[in-house]
Deep mutational scan, measured.
Amino acid sequence: KELVLVLYDYQEKSPREVTVKKGDILTLLNSTNKDWWKVEVDDSQGFIPAAYLKKL
């Protein structure tokens, strides 16, 4: 599985998104959309702007 590093805090703005903190390491589930990547946070899944993430 691929991991990503969160570069900036992000507060979810819709139920399909997730809240993350700078420095979090998350599992990347889908990066086919260049603007929004799907990640797994704890036991939930959701989208975060790709610009907030860096592949490890």
Rank of each mutant, 00 (worst) to 15 (best):
K1N: 10
K1T: 10
K1D: 08
K1H: 11
K1A: 10
K1C: 14
E2C: 15
E2W: 12
E2R: 13
E2K: 10
L3R: 11
L3N: 05
V4T: 02
V4H: 01
V4A: 07
L5G: 01
L5C: 09
L5M: 10
L5K: 05
L5W: 06
L5I: 12
V6I: 04
V6E: 00
V6D: 00
V6Q: 00
V6N: 00
V6T: 03
L7A: 03
L7Q: 03
L7M: 08
L7G: 00
L7V: 06
D9T: 06
D9H: 05
D9W: 05
Y10H: 03
Y10E: 01
Y10C: 05
Y10K: 01
Y10R: 03
Q11F: 14
Q11C: 12
Q11H: 13
Q11A: 12
Q11P: 05
E12H: 14
K13M: 11
K13H: 08
S14T: 11
S14K: 07
S14P: 07
S14W: 11
S14V: 06
S14F: 09
S14M: 07
S14H: 11
P15D: 11
P15S: 11
P15R: 09
P15Q: 09
P15L: 08
P15Y: 08
P15C: 10
P15I: 08
P15E: 11
P15T: 09
R16N: 14
R16Q: 11
R16G: 15
R16I: 11
R16Y: 13
R16E: 10
E17H: 09
E17R: 10
E17M: 09
V18A: 06
V18W: 14
V18L: 15
T19C: 07
T19N: 08
V20Q: 01
V20R: 01
V20A: 10
V20Y: 08
V20I: 05
V20N: 01
K21D: 02
K21S: 08
K22N: 04
K22V: 06
K22I: 04
K22S: 07
K22H: 06
G23E: 02
G23S: 03
G23M: 03
G23P: 01
G23C: 07
G23D: 05
D24S: 11
D24K: 07
D24I: 06
D24F: 08
I25D: 00
I25L: 06
I25A: 02
I25K: 05
I25G: 00
L26S: 00
L26W: 05
L26F: 04
T27V: 15
T27Q: 09
T27F: 11
T27L: 13
T27P: 09
T27A: 09
T27C: 10
T27I: 15
T27Y: 11
L28V: 05
L28H: 00
L28I: 04
L28Q: 00
L28K: 00
L28Y: 01
L29C: 06
L29A: 03
L29D: 00
L29I: 13
N30V: 07
N30R: 06
N30F: 06
N30Q: 10
N30E: 14
S31K: 06
S31T: 09
S31H: 09
S31D: 14
T32R: 11
T32W: 09
T32I: 08
T32S: 14
T32Y: 09
N33M: 08
N33K: 06
N33R: 09
N33A: 07
N33C: 11
N33Q: 09
N33E: 09
K34T: 10
K34H: 10
K34M: 09
K34P: 14
D35H: 15
D35C: 15
D35Q: 12
D35R: 14
D35F: 15
D35E: 12
W36N: 02
W36S: 03
W36H: 03
W36M: 06
W36R: 04
W36Q: 03
W37N: 00
W37L: 01
W37P: 00
K38E: 15
K38M: 15
K38I: 14
K38G: 05
K38F: 15
V39P: 00
V39H: 01
V39R: 00
V39K: 00
V39S: 01
V39E: 00
E40C: 14
E40K: 12
E40N: 05
V41Q: 07
V41H: 10
V41M: 10
V41L: 12
V41K: 15
V41G: 08
D42G: 15
D42T: 08
D42K: 14
D42E: 13
D42R: 14
D42C: 13
D42P: 07
D42A: 14
D43P: 03
D43I: 07
D43V: 07
D43E: 11
D43S: 12
S44L: 14
S44Y: 14
S44C: 12
S44K: 15
S44G: 13
Q45E: 13
Q45N: 09
Q45A: 13
Q45W: 15
G46A: 15
G46M: 15
G46C: 15
G46E: 10
F47E: 04
F47V: 06
F47G: 02
F47D: 04
F47P: 03
F47R: 03
F47Y: 14
I48N: 02
I48T: 03
I48Y: 02
P49K: 05
P49V: 04
P49D: 03
P49S: 04
P49M: 05
A50K: 06
A50N: 03
A50G: 04
A51V: 12
A51I: 13
A51W: 13
A51D: 08
A51K: 14
A51R: 15
A51F: 12
Y52C: 13
Y52S: 05
Y52T: 05
L53Y: 01
L53H: 00
L53A: 09
L53V: 12
L53M: 05
K54W: 10
K54N: 05
K54T: 09
K54M: 14
K54V: 12
K54D: 05
K55L: 13
K55G: 03
K55C: 10
L56E: 02
L56M: 09
L56F: 09
L56T: 04
L56H: 04
L56P: 00
